[in-house]
């Protein structure tokens, strides 16, 4: 589904990603871990098509197609979803209005009519129940005055509504208390299928207790310096990143 080859990316001439190789197949869950500032969010943004990052070498293939030239919304239409580490506020635009606009924009890109209000309502009801989001929340301005946990839950709600092929969750677990974490993880698990894939960016093992990764990668200084199975995450939890840094710097 996703194949990243020797990806180099920089922002304002500062090189951040320095040769990423990663392959994600349908049905898989990949975890990306690594110390702060190593480039995890940058990788997510580059995949999603944020323009301020310049790809200086390598490429990203989605279903075999090089997506370099695709705008962010076109990548979204192809099923790429990013749960933001820091979701932005849009005052005056309700959660409902936003998701409705997003869904219809995606449908339009596929040549479909707007989703009938009835179906939209039904879907919103279903997905908000799944994530234990109450009705009032849906009428609030997007991310405005949301707690950290509410923001993340709202990201996953949007994911549930948009049913992406490739979901990248950037530190969706931070800021969540244990109950919220369980609800969110449960939501993600329910949406998983053999046709879609998830990339989890996280610092903590605890999310991986709920969502079992098939592969764990360590990103450090713009490179994937170690890959392994779920066991690697446990090792990181125990030992921290210093031993990896030492290995790399040796």
């Amino acid at each position: 589904m996703l194949k990243i080859n020797n990806l180099h990316a920089s922002v304002e001439d500062k090189s951040i990603l320095k040769g990423i190789n990663l392959e994600v197949k349908a049905g898989e869950v990949h975890a990306i871990m690594g110390p702060n500032g190593s480039g995890k969010s940058t990788l997510a943004s580059v995949i999603a098509g944020k323009e301020e990052y310049e790809v200086t070498d390598g490429n990203i293939l989605l279903y075999g197609e090089d997506i370099e030239e695709l705008a962010a919304e076109e990548r979204a239409h192809k099923g790429v979803f990013l749960s933001f580490q820091y979701p932005v506020e849009i005052p005056g635009v309700s959660v409902t209005n936003f998701i409705k606009t997003a869904i219809n924009a995606n449908r339009k890109a596929k040549g479909l009519e707007d989703m009938p209000a009835k179906d939209m309502l039904k879907m919103i009801r279903e997905k908000s129940e799944l994530l234990e989001i109450d009705r009032k929340f849906l009428s609030r301005s997007l991310n405005q005055g949301f707690s950290g946990g509410e923001k993340k839950r709202n990201e996953i709600f949007q994911m549930a509504m948009l049913e992406p092929k490739l979901a990248i969750l950037d530190e969706t677990d931070s800021g969540l208390d244990i109950d919220a974490l369980r609800i969110v993880a449960n939501g993600v698990n329910k949406l998983k299928s053999k046709d879609n894939a998830v990339i989890l960016i996280t610092h903590y093992q605890r999310l991986l207790d709920y969502i079992k990764p098939d592969f764990v990668h360590v990103l450090y200084n713009g490179r994937i310096v170690k890959s392994g199975t779920a066991a690697l995450a446990h090792e990181l939890e125990e030992k921290g990143y210093d031993w990896i840094k030492e290995e790399v710097n040796a």
């Binding site: 979204a76 849009i90 005052p91 936003f98 997003a102 924009a105 949007q158 948009l162």
Partner: peptide
């Protein structure tokens, strides 16, 4: 804000309309 909307499949023109409508609500 615009990238956030783009990422959800909303193009830039529509994103601006959405943000402006929210602002003017």
């Amino acid at each position: 804000q615009i990238f956030y909307c783009n990422q959800r499949g909303i193009d830039t023109e529509k994103a601006i309309a959405l943000i402006v409508n929210g602002f003017s609500k």
